[in-house]
Amino acid sequence: MTQKQTPSQTIGPFFAYGLTPEQYGYNLTSIAAPDVANKDQAGEHIRIEGQIFDGEGVTVGDAMIEIWQADAAGRYAHPADSRGSNADFTGFGRVGTGTDPERRFFFETIKPGAVGDGQAPHINVIVFMRGMLNHAYTRIYLSDEVEANAADPVLAGIPDHRRGTLIAKRDDSGAGPVYRFDIHMQGADETVFFDL
């Protein structure tokens, strides 16, 4: 029997104790965290961080970001990927922007491998916040993957002047590699959001 989709509603301002409780210090176990990979996880360990800007350029302090990614070998921890991923790498991370003084989101993870379908290595992203009635999908591509990015069919379909909004800039000046990925909800640098 045909059913109709349940409408989306906003996450609202008060999600933290339910969805990101440990990060915010509430007494409930979290199902996911900003730390996606443990120390022993195979692959290059990286940090991803960024800020979310609203239409006036103000940082958003009550957003939640989720990431979903393949492991270093390009495999997803999900039954539809029959190749199988590293046993203890879920590839899923979740963080709120309300605990960092600069309202950054941040993930400690590993650099994803290419899935092998012609797409460049990337991290799948969902953005939620008060004031958004639907979540928004975007992707993080990696600035050091120059050749793979040039051949990526998704990036190829995006107008030149917007493509850069999907590419996180790698910084090797610190202790470990950091990819900086800012999200602009509106304006000249508005991030590309996907309908998928």
Binding site: D54, G55, E56, V58, V60, W68, A70, Y76, A77, H78, A80, D81, F92, V115, D117, Q119, H122, N124, M129, R130, G131, M132, A136, Y137, R139, V154, G157, I158, M185, Q186, E190, T191, V192, F193, F194, D195, L196
Partner: peptide
Amino acid sequence: LRSPTKPLVPLAQSLSEITG
């Protein structure tokens, strides 16, 4: 101030979208 103003870009589903 928090809504995307440009149309969403259609994305063909791949393993990245059908897994989770």
